[in-house]
Write a protein that binds this DNA or RNA. Structure first.
Length: 430
DNA sequence: TCTGGGGTCCTAGGACCC
DNA sequence: TCTGGGGTCCTAGGACCC
């Protein structure tokens, strides 16, 4: 059996954990740049605020005191997520962390008649120790566990845990589940399903397999099997990422080449840092620029350029240099850029790099790697990094990067404290 | 008019997820 | 005025090969 543990309204719950005055109130958490609503409390859902609503459409509710907004605070959410995951990991033989707020527990070796009881204990423990409410769905496949978790979340009678452990329950659950709520059925396929007369998960599983394959191919057939109780979704989730992306929207559109180049350098440096942290290297660096797609009155331009490195790297200098090259290839004067980013691809283990390449300057590579290592060391040392941060606003970095903090030029008007990771913020709470 | 057949590999783009 | 960010997987189709 799989148990899916899903944190309820996760970002909102994290904010509430340190601001109990938000309990019982309609709260939303906004995306980067305060752009959209990305997490809603039950109260704000009840007000009819949809996921991904642009913030400007509900700003008046915040200003009139009917809604509470917070800017996203990933340092806080990441830290609370790690605490939840560590409680889960200590409680069952194996867990697969699926996202910042979800994990699958593999319930091997746990008696089925004790499963619900064990899960209820977990719900209580996470609530008590971390302050985060969670729901748990249990079933034979991951897709059915997702279905079960929806019921656990929706109906208080389940006390946070719903288990689908019989044919009868499975059928009942599927007939009550709209097809759009099924894991793996997205917007496009919902339209196709509707056209084919399918509105619930039960309607879908009744269709013959050849028909499913013909219309929804491999992915659809997997979902179909999973809903019938036959596991098809891969067991192991890869532990290392295959691509890493750092991108941001800007509060104000940028047109200046130097300013944009400095942002690109920042994004590239972030990517390089993430690679080093995972002990991986990338063979490709992609730069992309976006104009403002919502401004019909402005010329649009969405270029991208990919640079292949001669030998995969993870030092800041090389990744930034490649990104600068890409930037120079695609940048055009006269456009107003709203968003930009850097993607590193073709990722492999750092210790598997093959340096024996004719004409490649290995000495230089070693010097650059050493420099990045020293920069990481300085930036992670509390006292040194503190001194740099206060002196310059963002630690040690390349001269091509922006002079200020990474987040400069990105809107975040409602940010709460970094309660669990910043001592000063913790003091404020106390 | 007619102009092979069969493979593999790579990439871009689409769909989906949270 | 104001509209997020970061991933994965699959597929079609092009390039290339013999």
């Amino acid at each position: 059996m799989y148990a899916l543990v899903d944190c309820n309204n996760f970002f909102v719950s994290c904010e509430r954990a340190f601001q109990p005055q938000l309990e019982g109130k309609p709260v939303v958490v906004l995306s980067n740049n305060d752009g959209c609503v990305v997490s809603r409390s039950n109260e704000s859902k009840a007000m009819g605020i949809a996921m991904c609503t642009p913030f400007y459409k509900v700003r008046h509710l915040v200003e009139s005191g009917k809604l509470y907004a917070r800017s996203s605070n990933y340092a806080l959410y990441g830290d609370l997520s790690a605490r939840v995951m560590s409680i889960l990991a200590d409680s069952v033989p194996r867990i697969e962390v699926y996202s910042i707020d979800e994990a699958f527990l593999v319930m091997d070796g746990i008696a089925e008649d004790r499963t619900v009881e064990i899960c209820r204990e977990l719900v209580a423990r996470i609530r008590k120790w971390v302050g985060i409410p969670v729901s748990i769905g249990v079933a034979k496949t991951k897709t059915l566990a997702k279905v079960a978790s929806h019921f656990a979340k929706k109906y208080p009678g389940y006390h946070g845990v719903c288990m689908i452990d019989s044919e009868e329950k499975r059928r009942k659950a599927l007939s009550l589940t709209p097809i759009r709520e099924v894991w793996g059925i997205g917007r496009k396929n919902v339209v196709k399903m509707k056209d084919a007369g399918i509105s619930t998960a039960a309607d879908f599983v009744e269709r013959p397999q050849p028909w499913v394959y013909e219309n929804f191919m491999l992915q659809g057939t997997r979902t179909w099997n999973e809903l019938r109780g036959i596991p098809c979704v891969a067991e192991e989730l890869p532990d290392k990422r295959k691509s890493i992306c750092t991108s941001r929207s800007f509060a104000d559109m940028l047109s200046d080449r130097q300013e944009l180049a400095a942002k690109i350098a920042d994004f590239a440096a972030q990517c390089a840092g993430k690679l080093r942290k995972e002990k991986t290297v990338a063979g490709k660096v992609t730069v992309f620029l976006w104009t403002n797609r919502f401004r019909d009155d402005l010329e649009q331009y969405y270029p991208s350029a990919t640079i292949c490195l001669p030998v995969a790297a993870n030092n800041t200098q090389e990744i930034v240099a490649a990104a600068m090259h890409g930037m120079n290839m695609v940048y055009r004067d006269g456009y107003l850029y709203k968003k930009a980013g850097v993607i590193v691809d073709d990722i492999s283990d750092a210790d598997s790099v093959q340096p024996l390449m004719f004409g490649f300057d290995m000495e230089q590579r070693l010097r650059q790697d050493a420099l990045s290592a020293v920069m990481d060391q300085i930036n992670s040392d509390a006292s040194l990094a503190g001194a740099c941060r206060y002196a310059h606003g963002g630690g040690v970095r390349l001269a091509s990067q922006s002079p200020g903090r990474f987040a400069d030029g990105i809107r975040s008007d409602f940010r709460s404290g970094h309660y669990t990771t910043d001592f000063q913020d913790l003091i404020k709470v106390r």
